[in-house]
């Protein structure tokens, strides 16, 4: 059975060939001079400063909000790496929806043999995959050095599943903003606001466990905490076992809900492509 399909010009392409688009961001980062070294240095410094800050804060206390010093440091390190790697190089590479609209090249997204929706998805897959490599490297470096605590082996698969779901929510949230750009034309500020709100409400600035009850209640009603707080809390063992299934179900719910919403937006967005330049 052949898996190849015929392209309009008669060439044979593999169905999985589209996935190669996902390499664009990682390759761009690796091949552009100094970006990987820059990122490595930035993560190393950010992790070092997070560790010394949280250790210093815990000097006079052994536990706060159910987190001991090692748990808080581990949470802070994982949160720092996730925040600093997830927001990708799309802007630098000139491949955001806003930049494409301003240049007029957004049109090509709808003229290629690959649909705009799939192109965006595969690019996102590559970018988030690249971010996970940084996370894995950080964990592999920090664990032997004793900077972060080891995860409970039984919880490790749960953490991985929750992290995948968190990345999916993150992807869908950013997709909402990019798709709204088809109506609002500009989305720079919305993207920045989303970054700050997402970082704050996901626990990227400080573990959500330290926040007042009302704040955590609000964050539970929103999708952001599923992007970081849930997986990281599972890793550090702070999320009670009785709440893990519910938290995972909530993550799945957000993924499905946002996916359906974005599917609806994509259909409408593709009917009203606006370009400003060209």
């Amino acid at each position: 059975m052949s898996t190849a399909t015929a392209a309009p010009d008669g060439r044979r392409t593999r169905p999985w060939a589209h996935l190669l688009v996902g390499r664009v961001t990682p390759l761009g980062e690796v091949l552009a001079g100094g970006r990987v070294a820059t990122k490595a240095l930035q993560i190393a410094v950010a992790v070092f400063l997070s560790v010394v800050l949280w250790r210093a804060l815990y000097v006079g206390t052994s536990s706060q909000a159910g987190l001991d010093r090692e748990q808080a440091v581990t949470y802070a390190v994982l949160g720092t790496v996730l925040v600093s790697t997830r927001f990708s190089a799309s802007w630098l590479n000139g491949d955001t929806v806003l930049q494409r609209m301003q240049q007029g090249t957004i049109l090509f997204w709808f003229l290629r043999p690959m649909s705009a929706r799939r192109y965006y998805f595969v690019r996102g897959l590559g970018e988030l995959g690249y971010a996970q490599v940084w996370l894995a490297v950080t964990v592999l470096v920090c664990l032997p050095l004793g900077v972060i605590q080891e995860p409970d082996p039984a919880m490790l698969p749960v953490f991985v599943v929750s992290l995948l779901l968190g990345n999916a929510i993150f992807y869908e949230l950013n997709l909402v903003l990019d798709l709204l750009c088809f109506w609002t034309v500009m989305n720079q500020s919305a993207v920045q606001i989303m970054f700050f709100v997402q970082t704050l409400l996901s626990g990227g600035f400080a573990p959500l466990w330290f926040f007042p009850d009302w704040f955590r209640t609000v964050s539970l009603l929103l999708p952001f905490q599923g992007t970081l707080n849930v997986p990281v809390s599972i890793y550090v063992g702070r999320l009670p076992a009785s709440q893990i299934a519910g938290s995972l179900a909530l993550q799945v719910g957000w993924v499905v809900g946002l996916w359906l919403f974005n599917r609806w937006l994509w259909e409408r967005a593709s009917r009203r492509v606006t370009v400003q330049g060209g």
Partner: peptide, 8 residues
């Protein structure tokens, strides 16, 4: 949050 949790 840090001020409240870690005063002084």
């Amino acid at each position: 949050v840090l001020l409240v949790r870690f005063p002084g």
